[in-house]
Design a protein around this nucleic acid. Sequence first.
DNA 1: CATATAATTTAGACATGTCTAAATATAAAA
DNA 2: TTTTATATTTAGACATGTCTAAATTATATG
Lengths: 224, 224
Amino acid sequence: MISKISKSEGDYLKAIYQLTQQEETTNTMALSALLNVKPPSVTSMLIKLVKHDPPLVDYQKWQGVKLTESGNKLAIQLTRRHRLIEQFLVEVLNYTWEEVHTEAEELEHVISEKFEEHLANLLGNPQFDPHGDPIPDRDLNFPDTDTLSLSNLAVGQAAIVRRVKINQADLLRYLSDQGIIPGARIKIQNRNPYDETLQLWIGDEIAPYALGVEISKLIDVEEI
Amino acid sequence: MISKISKSEGDYLKAIYQLTQQEETTNTMALSALLNVKPPSVTSMLIKLVKHDPPLVDYQKWQGVKLTESGNKLAIQLTRRHRLIEQFLVEVLNYTWEEVHTEAEELEHVISEKFEEHLANLLGNPQFDPHGDPIPDRDLNFPDTDTLSLSNLAVGQAAIVRRVKINQADLLRYLSDQGIIPGARIKIQNRNPYDETLQLWIGDEIAPYALGVEISKLIDVEEI
DNA sequence: CATATAATTTAGACATGTCTAAATATAAAA
DNA sequence: TTTTATATTTAGACATGTCTAAATTATATG
């Protein structure tokens, strides 16, 4: 449906959506940092979103923000479009996985509902995008998954990479060069007890480089 | 290349491009009508475009407008993107030809050069879009054509429909329902001497409805 | 050629979304 | 608890692209 909201409004909704996956609410500073705009810009947009009919956020000054039911729907709708587009770019247009985010970020605000439908059909209603991010279906329900963070995987436990929650292009390229992509079979050889740096097997090979915790937190795996 | 111009700037460039295909220059009124904005908006945009570095239009007040070399290149570049997208929508996403214009109008301003390249590859560098409009190649050269307007076709002369220069969705649907689409074989049975209304054969059938001059002027055919 | 009509431009307003600088409220530290 | 630091908001500016109303120039007509 996506009532006609602007690109900016959509970007804020997605940012709030993302930041409220962990915490109950988020705040001006976090949004400012994520969206690369100054705090006053955030405040004025929050005021705009709360005055929207229907209101898209719960917001009272000094109290933090979260999405309303309507705002949440719009954010998920945009997420669906974004991920369908990413999948399309890789599957149909032969993009590499590190190239798709930027392009999808623009296109998601412009395509019509019709385009979304045709695209989903063409792709066979995929449940995951090239990074393994889940794609909500037409009714905005996410597919079930059974994963845990690589940072929590036990030493010696074999697993399959399911999701890489990273947008940074050079890091994505590095990871795919190492073979760390959705579908890859991995196992932890050891975990440094001080900084939790991981030594991995990737497939049947020992990985040439270790992996820091911060990155490992952004990778989801499924135990085999 | 497409130096970063806005959607609006691009729309004006395309409009000026279109209106200067017949006449040497165009004017405020014509642009106002075509773009559905008021005359003062046109004037202020023309001032902006002429101040652009490099200038995108030749414009002095009261003197009419035309594109500069730079403006022309940008207009053709956008035309290329528009028509590639239309071709993609029909060929890959199964749109009908009357649905594609509006969608392409939005997308053309948003896709990257990379997207354009991948799209052209996927489609096999098509020379014409679903309406038969010529698609300039990467170097912005248009394919050669050998067509004349249906309004100028001689009675009894067999021809093939090559191009339908119409965007209006309901009219396009009507024409395709009648079988008047690029590739169709037609012949003029007679031409009303007073208003030049045409009776056509379409394929081997006599068309159930006559065709007015105004529409026939917008259809290009190739003699067989 | 004078005047009426039409086209174009100027002037100034408004909406959107951003910014900087300054004010204010909250949270942390002494 | 008072002070200091940090987060947030307010106030006001600016760019973009549109608008209306009014002024100006060009064109057409009598």
